[in-house]
Simulated scan of single mutants.
Amino acid sequence: MGSTATKTIQRPRSVFSETQKRKVHHLFNVLDIDRNGQLQPNDFVNVGKKIVAQLKLSEDSRSARLILLKSHRLFVQLLTDLDNPELSLTLWDWVAFFRDQIESKQEGILDHYIQRTSRHIFDLFDMNKDKLISRDEYANMLTIYNIPQDAAIQGFEELDENQDNFISADEMVVGLGNFFRSSDENAKGNLIFGRWD
C-alpha cells in the first residue's frame, strides 16, 4: 500500500511591495495607541476600555469584561502568531512578520490571522450585534483609533462592496485580505484603517 501523506499546496512566491510595507507600517501606528513605538498589552486593553466607555457600559459588567478580554486575547494571539515570547512588538517585528508571510510559498499563518482578525474587528464594530456594521458603527469605532471621520467613511464605502450601506462579515474578510495581500494602491480595503498614503 502507498503512503497517504497529504501534500502541502504551494503558491507562487509573492513579493512584499513598498505599498504593502506602507500599509502594514500604518496599521502598526494605528494600533500603537500610546505612541511609544511598541505594541504592548496596554495598547489593546486601552482600546477595549474606550469601547466600553463609548458603549456606556459599566466597567464591571459582563459585556465590558468580555470586550476587555477579547481585546487582550487579540494581543496574545498576535504574539503567538509572531512566535514572540516578549510582551511587546517592535515595528521591525511587525513588518518582518507580514513580509515573511506574504513572501511565503505556502498557505499559512497570515490566512488564519486575516480570518481571526476579521472576526474580531467585526465583533467589536457590530455594536448592536445585528451581524452587520453600519456606517455610524464603523465611523464611531475608528474614532477610538484616532482616525478622522471622513477617512473612516471612505474606508466604509470601500468595504461595502454590494452598496447596501452595511458591511457584512464576508465583506470584512475580503477587505482585510486585500489590505494585506494587494500591492494595488487602489485595492478595495486599503482604507480599512484610514489613509496610509
Rank of each mutant, 00 (worst) to 15 (best):
V15H: 13
F16A: 07
R119L: 13
F97L: 06
N42R: 12
Q106V: 13
E86L: 10
R62D: 13
R13C: 09
W94Q: 03
N165Q: 14
D126I: 00
I147L: 10
L89F: 04
E171Q: 13
V24G: 02
W94S: 04
A64D: 08
V173L: 05
G155V: 04
F98R: 01
R135G: 01
D34E: 14
I133K: 05
N42M: 14
W196M: 04
L31M: 15
D60E: 13
Y113Q: 07
S14P: 00
I121E: 02
F44K: 03
Q20H: 05
F75K: 04
S63D: 15
N46G: 08
H112P: 00
I147M: 08
K7R: 12
F44D: 02
F180L: 05
E107A: 12
V24C: 05
D123T: 11
Q54I: 08
N178Y: 02
D184N: 15
E18A: 08
L82Y: 03
V24A: 10
N146W: 12
F156H: 06
R22S: 14
T4P: 01
A169E: 11
F28A: 01
N190I: 00
A96Q: 12
D83L: 11
H26Q: 11
A139C: 15
D164I: 08
K56P: 00
P41E: 06
N178K: 09
I153V: 15
P41M: 08
R116V: 09
N162C: 04
N29L: 15
F193Y: 15
S118I: 03
G189A: 08
N29T: 09
G108F: 10
L78D: 01
Y138A: 04
D34Y: 10
D100Y: 02
L66N: 10
K129S: 15
A169K: 12
E158P: 02
A5C: 10
D197L: 06
V173G: 01
Q38N: 11
K70V: 11
I9R: 09
I114D: 01
G108Y: 04
L31A: 06
K188L: 13
I33T: 12
R135V: 09
L78E: 01
L87A: 05
G155K: 03
W94P: 04
D32M: 09
I109H: 02
V52E: 02
L39D: 06
K50S: 08
S168T: 14
D160Y: 02
S182P: 05
H72W: 10
S17E: 11
T4D: 15
P41Y: 05
V174F: 06
M1S: 14
F122W: 07
V15G: 00
S17L: 07
E107F: 14
E107Y: 14
D60Y: 07
A187Q: 07
I147P: 02
E157G: 00
N146M: 13
I167Q: 07
L66K: 14
V15W: 03
F44P: 00
D123E: 14
E161A: 11
I114N: 01
V174M: 10
R35I: 05
S3F: 10
T90R: 09
T8H: 13
N162A: 01
F156W: 09
I9H: 10
N36K: 15
R62P: 05
L142R: 03
R135F: 02
I102S: 10
L39N: 07
F156R: 04
I167W: 03
A53M: 12
D130Q: 12
R99F: 03
P12E: 15
G194S: 06
F125C: 03
S88T: 14
I102W: 07
A5H: 13
K131S: 13
